[in-house]
Nucleic acid binder design. Sequence first.
DNA 1: TTGTAGGCGGTGTGCCGACAA
DNA 2: TTGTCGGCACACCGCCTACAA
Lengths: 572, 572
Amino acid sequence: MMCGLIDLNDDTVEVTTSYASPSVNLSLFTKTTSSHSTPVVCSLELWHACAGPLVSLPKKGNAVVYLPQGHLEQHRIYDSPLITGVNLPSHVFCRVVDVKLHAEKGSDQVVAQVSLIPDSQLEKKLGETEAEEDDNGGTDEKPTTPHMFCKTLTASDTSTHGGFSVPRRAAEDCFPPLDYSQPRPSQELVAKDLHGTEWKFRHIYRGQPRRHLLTTGWSAFINHKKLVCGDAVLFLRGDDGVLRLGVRRAVQLKSSYDFPANFARQLNDSNFNTIVKSISQKTVFNVCYNPSGSKFIVPYHRFRKSLTNKFSLGTRFNLRFETEDATERRCRGIITGVSDIDPVNWPGSKWRCLTVKWDGVEATRQNRVSPWEIEGHTSVTGSAFNSISSPVSKRIKTDLRPEFHVPEDGAGGSLDFKKSSRFPKVLQGQEIFSYDHYPYGIVGSRNSMISILRNDLRNRALRSSEVLQGQEIVCNNSMQPLPVIHFPNVILQPTYSRPIIVADDSRHLGFGQGYLGQHNGHNERETISSLLTEKSLYPNPNPSLSLKLSHIGPQESVSTCRSSCRLFGFTL
Amino acid sequence: MMCGLIDLNDDTVEVTTSYASPSVNLSLFTKTTSSHSTPVVCSLELWHACAGPLVSLPKKGNAVVYLPQGHLEQHRIYDSPLITGVNLPSHVFCRVVDVKLHAEKGSDQVVAQVSLIPDSQLEKKLGETEAEEDDNGGTDEKPTTPHMFCKTLTASDTSTHGGFSVPRRAAEDCFPPLDYSQPRPSQELVAKDLHGTEWKFRHIYRGQPRRHLLTTGWSAFINHKKLVCGDAVLFLRGDDGVLRLGVRRAVQLKSSYDFPANFARQLNDSNFNTIVKSISQKTVFNVCYNPSGSKFIVPYHRFRKSLTNKFSLGTRFNLRFETEDATERRCRGIITGVSDIDPVNWPGSKWRCLTVKWDGVEATRQNRVSPWEIEGHTSVTGSAFNSISSPVSKRIKTDLRPEFHVPEDGAGGSLDFKKSSRFPKVLQGQEIFSYDHYPYGIVGSRNSMISILRNDLRNRALRSSEVLQGQEIVCNNSMQPLPVIHFPNVILQPTYSRPIIVADDSRHLGFGQGYLGQHNGHNERETISSLLTEKSLYPNPNPSLSLKLSHIGPQESVSTCRSSCRLFGFTL
DNA sequence: TTGTAGGCGGTGTGCCGACAA
DNA sequence: TTGTCGGCACACCGCCTACAA
């Protein structure tokens, strides 16, 4: 289920050592890629822009430590029968033979395929205080200034009712100029995604006051990528003049029909037996490295440094991490213990061997970290949480040069990893939602994600047999099983004439753009689940998801809503 | 990708010999079945009705011959690297341990899972003239008379424009009676398919003259099953009063997204290495037996008999077979040679070892048959092709007892196979199309299959990324890549105000029910392929498959057709 | 008896400017 | 500057009868 192969090699340093060609069978990969036949020469920038600011990748020739334990954790095949009894070292010292960038077909999630070869020389050198290897840190960072912007999709952007509202500066920066002398200038935009697929949009400058809009073509894009309110799109105009676009999801799309394919691919591609064999024979093996998953490939220097660090109980530390909305954040904690997380299978492993206690509200974070993840207590002024509490006035920032910043490297010294530092702040455009600044949007807790709805629900779920998680099948007025979403303790409310969905603690969870019917009026507050059941009655000639609304706001008559729905993924 | 497990065992004779329980890992099967959680107690009749009149299945305890060569042929993994070098006997004598009936999830195609155990006793007995084993031929055929009918779907039946026209006798025979005293009597029908899924339909008796119709719910069924004009549905009311319905496709649906799953399942389920191991160790193994594929499980007696037959060159023979429209037919030929089809891998195999020359128009059939497939020249009066040339006056026949017929067994003696002889003629309802009797339908050559079209094409292909075979992706007026079907040498024509699709030799291939627009008129006859390209231009606000029409019939103004399309599978 | 055509109401989609935050 | 709303055009869906084969 992958395509859009991106060869990173153009951009990497020449590897001084030469390695044998990979011995692992990549036939599955090759087949799948060729079956989609996308010989993509795609933008490295786009991959990194989609990956987010904190994603770092090893480069060809780098020395790294591979942690099988973390790899298994990511792939959730920890309890697979294949794995038990594997006698693998918990830390495998390797050279990076190759790095290839991919994007998952269904979700557009970025993935890197890293080819590693075990290098026992590295383990021997562990104790030595040799000079740092020439990893040639950032010298090859071409000072390209791609014109790009990233915008969190609003309810209107993802509604079936209209198109995409382009921030003015973004349009001027990234899109070809329009002839503003015309009354309604417009042009056709063509943008390539990570897979090399071309998307065409009508770009028009109209309205009073005038603004940039993407109209025709936008809905198809939204549908195809299954984007919902709260996700973000990014446009990027390279020096070659080619317009590219990418996607960053607020919640990782775990498409029901993607999962098995991915699972199979992972099992095949990084089949653990193959990896075990390769490691014992010191031959090249491939791992699929999902940057948003667990970081089981660690720069050698960072790992070595973490070994020399003293982690006494009570030591304070910092940890940088990336939130789901691509914001880089820090949090602080205190080391409370050192112990194996899995003493049976992985005795002596450093993988998440530190138990910690987090400061403040971060207490909900998992209480284990790996030594190389944390940084010594550097004096950071300001609260670690100011990005939450401070009002964010702008939702979008174009990539202006002065805003570049090089992330402080703290104690880790990850110079041998290529950071996505070219677009460090841009992705912060995906701001953390707050009621104050995003009144009709989505409350972005990781576990509450509602989008604007429409009848696609029916099309997609019924015709394509994609039943979404959390849905129940009930018989509705179409007389066929329809997926119905249960919103426990959620109340549907209208805002003006269009409904918004509100949790019973009055948080706004989203709103829809359906039409309010002229049916029997209702003023009571009722939960949606009951309403769905009540409305799922025969006969009703036109099947649609019928919801009753409670009364709120300036709406006089509130009644049944024949909702126009767009709903992709959803947990509550 | 299977569900709808049907246990045949209730209906089979008690097996006298007891066998070890299957040693083959069925976990994949079990998992998949349970994941769909359809603990179906489903009708054996329905399975056989869907399978067609000529499908025969072995029963528990039967003696059979398994031909690995034919198995591999069916699974098209003949050239798989897994298979080379396998040293398997070409004929494996087995006992049937178990038979389980399934239906494929995507296509509703019937499949049987047959568990076999090698039995060397059978091979030893080959030469003996022992009394026939008690296979208990047809004694357990309960004289149930299920009320059923099978109807080939018309263009109107599959159109988005309306519902399903139920033949009167069929409705009276299979559906609960309506209160005809009412002006428009109606009821809700619930019917279970092979998977146990319930489908609900509004059954109404209305119109002038009055007729039975299925309205609400029908479109959803058509969509879900991806049925097109030319396919057939069958309804069956069992003695338990439960209404069931099945599907027979005119052209086997090779859904693009089903295929990989099936392929994987087959590889896993009847993994050839496993089978090879089982045969050498004489343990139970499972094969997925697709009755419409190659018949690689042959009744022991039939196989033995075929060995004793003398097939001298020039011998005339009959062969019964099933056409794609479920009609049982015969054709005649003459034996021209005896030779191994694959002397390298399967020397001495009887699998399709006879080369033959067919009489008349059947010359296009493949020129190899297996000895047990053919029957000696019995005196059959009438042409072998009369079912083609004779006009078929009725498209539907209810299952009236007097119409039962027991198929002649010819020389094969397949008494130890359970035949679907309960509904021998009903499925002939899927008649061979002819222009005379089916003027607006589909010309049913195996390689020309067009259905009514609608915008589902866009929904399904674009949103669900199901691109149909034979389609090309071009940019149309929605500004996104849309699948566009190329009809070489095909001309679109209107009939009254709705278009029909006509081949350039003036055969009607089908028709659509789109609305004719008020755009630029065209009277020329043009091929669709060029029209599609021409109309795929920006700007056009409402994306749809735009076709120009040539002028024909009583339509005054012929112009661009914003077609309402339903198109599932298609080759031309 | 039943296949197809035309009528028509309901509703979803998507482009537009108005308006206000 | 840009998010949302109401209006609107238009196309599709599906239920109905008329008519004719």
